[in-house]
């Protein structure tokens, strides 16, 4: 099983890196899905089969699909890839990467120090079954579930309000132009 863990881990790291660095949005999303799947594998190995399933269904399935939808809606094709390449300059990524690298060093050092103090040698007990999770969710964390509901409601209302486009009477080819006018009007109004 250890081997599976390492393989899944390497795949996850590789796929994530590709997802982050890829110029093409759809490709990147696919890499991300691969990454999520391999993380799901790790979930499974770590004794969380229920969560592994959820990871696949909700994360890799539902949420990523949302992304795909949006990417498709924006539909920017090859031009977008070109633009991504332009944006991806040395001075754009150099400093953040250095900073994160330093952070990584400190981070690992802290984890290593922690492991010296608290050593857990792998997972020894069996997996935690979905029913255990469910029981917890419907007893102690029942209020948490309610809260999650409220949170989702807030998200939905927000997304609904922001995402809703006004009915417009123009033809869709004219829309762009009229929008531009409205932008410039806005700009003059809201300049700070």
């Amino acid at each position: 099983m250890n081997l599976v863990f390492y393989i899944a881990a390497l795949v996850a790291i590789f796929a994530t890196l590709r997802a982050v660095l890829h110029k093409h949005a759809v490709h990147a999303l696919l890499y991300l899905i691969v990454s999520l799947l391999s993380v799901a594998v790790i979930f499974f190995i770590l004794g969380a089969p229920f969560l592994a399933a959820l990871e696949v269904i909700i994360y890799a399935g539902a949420i990523m699909v949302l992304f795909v939808f949006v990417v498709m809606m924006l539909n920017r094709g090859e031009a977008a890839v070109q633009q991504e390449k332009e944006w991806f300059r040395f001075r754009t990524w150099a400093w953040p990467s250095v900073l994160v690298l330093i952070l990584f060093v400190e981070w690992v050092y802290m984890l290593w120090r922690g492991s010296a103090q608290q050593s857990f040698a792998g997972v020894t007990q069996g997996p935690i079954q979905p029913q255990q999770v469910g029981e917890l969710l419907f007893t102690q964390y029942l209020l948490g579930v309610e809260m999650a509901a409220m949170m989702l409601m807030a998200g939905i209302i927000g997304a609904y309000h922001i995402g809703k486009q006004k009915q417009k009477s123009y033809h869709r080819y004219l829309e762009e132009k009229s929008d531009q006018i409205s932008i410039s009007e806005n700009k003059t109004q809201e300049v700070i």
Binding site: E55, I58, I156, G158, Y160
Partner: peptide
């Protein structure tokens, strides 16, 4: 997961 979903919804909007 729930939070990620909500956030992505608003974010994408």
């Amino acid at each position: 997961l729930a939070m990620a979903a909500a956030e992505v919804a608003v974010g994408l909007a």
